[in-house]
Design a protein around this nucleic acid. Structure first.
Lengths: 242, 242
DNA sequence: CTGCGCTTGTGTCATTTGACATGAAACGGT
DNA sequence: ACCGTTTCATGTCAAATGACACAAGCGCAG
């Protein structure tokens, strides 16, 4: 199911910076493959050497670290258009795993071509760095949550940030979006126990902050969530897509 | 107190990847200034637009986010050779602050020259991206601490990781190093209260994990700390210095 | 010297969060 | 229809952490 970059449905959604023909041709040349992985698949296993670089084309995934005794921390969620595995492509070995939440489609960008991108396409190289900085800023926000927000505030911050990211991609219709995470994912992302996550979610739901029925998240009042979480993001310009 | 990059004392310490003459000349050309800031100075204030890029030449600093109600999270500590403000230089506005712990010396790399670096020096551009990925991996580790480690484990992980970073820079002599952080810094970095940090530090000290007298940190048994923290880092190759 | 602010140390108690147990509902495979 | 598995929900109690109060040491400006 190869999708040529010229026909990329994602690029047409309006969230991304326009590219010129030369850049698009280079990206298309760089894309080696288009893979489909089932839910739960490990896209990058922790410790993998010479990991490839990917772009998530469709579906949800996450990046996580696991301690030797099994405790797991989800570092960030990955939505369509996000780069997967930049650290892994820069370093000898990946320091984290990447796992699919839903069925996902990914574009494979071989790591050895990353160097040719830096050599030949400085604009795209800059974009790669920009995307790395953006991912870091998401992890920054998650660290701020884990370190300084209460359980309810963390949940509010997570929901509002995912909602906004999905909204930019056109995945929100009438305030509702498909939300594939289960409570264990949320707990692992926020540094909470499963049970406490469940109870805090229930509390926010009873407060009328959102509703969540069979995989559909509805935000009636995003502002209330924002102020509970003290989460206020900047207006971001269109981001690059590689 | 301008220091030409040809005479950079930091580069001579053995922790950094060698550069060729052309690269070094470019870096020297890029360096606009060499500043000294007192302890507590704000090197980058949160929200600053068009923030410059810096390299920390000497001293300690940190990067942090502050919530509207004043809660503060330190995202990572910055040691000599680390890039300061890459996100700030890529985005319109900095999403975080950077503050000096000790007196610091910083090299100023104007943000408009970052683009010429991507255009003319792909190796150095790659290095910048690599340094960004490295910073992210540090934040990843901090998030794992805040989310999944107990108070004592977090302290152990922080101390061992700072110790190893300082060691690479040649700042450790006979297992001892100068340690300029106070307990408030540690608490803000680990997502703990000041009092609990104090008590947990005391517990580890009584266990003989380390000693800390007037600013000198001594690790008698780094292995014990590592296994308490479940912190095991990879052997990293020499890193770039820009 | 004196007083003040900063940092560290310690005790007591409150709050948040985690651990464990249990059950209900949904779902897929046979 | 039946069964096992997963996910979500809820109660009780325990453990970790935070909040507050206070004291000691220390550097430093007046």
């Amino acid at each position: 199911m190869r999708v040529p970059c010229f026909e990329c449905a994602l690029r047409a959604c309006g969230a991304f910076k326009p590219v010129n023909d030369v850049e698009l041709a280079f990206i298309n040349e760089m894309k080696r493959d288009h893979l489909v992985c089932p839910p739960g698949a490990e896209i990058i296993p922790a410790g993998e050497e010479q990991a490839e670089l990917y772009t998530l084309y469709a579906g949800w995934a996450f990046r996580c670290k696991t301690l030797p005794d099994g405790r797991r921390q989800i570092l960030n969620f990955i939505l369509p258009g996000d780069l997967i595995g930049l650290q892994g492509a820069m370093f000898e070995a990946a320091l984290y795993s990447v796992e699919a939440v839903t069925e996902v489609q990914i574009c494979v960008l071989p790591r050895r071509k990353v160097w040719s991108l830096f050599e030949n396409m400085p604009e795209l190289a800059f974009d790669v760095t920009w995307l790395g900085a953006r991912e870091e800023s998401i992890v920054d926000e998650n660290l701020t949550s884990a370190g300084r927000r209460s359980a309810s505030e963390r949940i509010a911050a997570l929901i509002i940030s995912l909602y906004k990211r999905a909204d930019k991609l056109g995945l929100v219709v009438n305030g509702a979006m498909s939300f594939p995470l289960n409570q264990q994912h949320i707990a692992d992302a926020l540094g909470l126990s499963l049970v406490h996550t469940n109870k805090s979610l229930g509390k926010l739901r009873k407060l009328g902050m959102f509703s969540l029925d069979n995989g559909a998240l509805l935000l009636s009042n995003p502002r209330a969530l924002e102020s509970l979480a003290q989460y206020f993001d900047e207006e971001t310009p269109k981001r690059p897509l590689i």
